[in-house]
């Protein structure tokens, strides 16, 4: 079994329901995010277009975060999920530096690394991840990519000509696909990031030595 995720960006309308569901389900502290939806505007008024891109851990099968973790706090589950053991983590932040997708953060409450686990605890109870349940337009497709009959496998097959992963050149083999994900949606260097467009950008928590 190899669990994977697919987001159909044709359908996503940027409601952030997945983001909030994830926050509530996993008790993600303020100023940190396991899943977020990024808005990018393209064009010149009035010919403008807005894209919405949910961003989460890609659960790569060649995960650099798993490789760099010195204590195996980041580890693979049998279903392919890259899980994290917060009791084992020493907070070296090597995984934060290794993840090409910026999907790992240091939890300010536990001082350990944290990230999306595809809601591994829900999967273990035969439930769907919280973000999948919350999505009102079924833009999040989740399932076993080793099973050709699964919904996600069929979706991938149907959209072969318009399916992308983020930063494929890194060789991480991400298990997270996007349908209709263009450069602007998937490449962080393809858009500018002006000041003043960030949610909770000024949130601070008690910092350890070095202020990181």
């Amino acid at each position: 079994m190899q669990l994977g995720f697919l987001v159909d960006l044709h359908l996503c309308m940027g409601c952030k329901g997945c983001e909030i569901a994830c926050k509530v389900e996993n008790e993600v502290p303020l100023s940190t995010w396991r899943l977020r939806v990024k808005y990018v505007d393209v064009g010149t008024f009035p010919e403008t277009k807005r894209t919405f891109t949910p961003l989460r851990c890609n659960h790569c099968t060649n995960a650099p975060c798993e490789r760099i973790c010195p204590v195996s706090a980041l580890h693979y589950l049998d279903n392919g999920i890259v899980n994290i053991d917060k009791e084992r983590c020493i907070g070296c932040a090597g995984c934060v530096m290794a993840c090409p997708y910026g999907a790992i953060y240091i939890d300010p409450q536990t001082n350990t690394a944290d990230k999306c686990t595809y809601c591994a605890h829900r999967i273990a109870s035969s439930m769907m991840p919280a973000c999948v349940v919350a999505c009102p337009v079924e833009a999040n497709i989740f399932g076993d990519v080793d099973d050709a009959a699964s919904n996600i496998s069929k979706y991938i097959q149907r959209n072969q000509s318009n399916i992308q992963v983020r930063k494929a050149e890194r060789g991480t083999n991400p298990m997270h696909w996007y349908v209709n994900g263009g450069q602007v949606a998937l490449n962080p260097l393809a858009s500018e990031r002006p000041e003043g467009h960030h949610l909770f950008g000024k949130m601070t928590s008690k910092m350890p030595i070095g202020g990181h």
Binding site: K38, D41, V96, I106, S191, E192, R193, H198, H212
Partner: peptide, 23 residues
């Protein structure tokens, strides 16, 4: 975002990204 050239793109809403992690 209204002043952008057609080929340009701006992030118009996102979370604050973490700054320096290894200080």
């Amino acid at each position: 975002h209204e002043m952008l050239a057609a080929t340009n793109a701006v992030v118009s809403l996102d979370v604050g990204l973490p700054g320096i992690v290894w200080p």
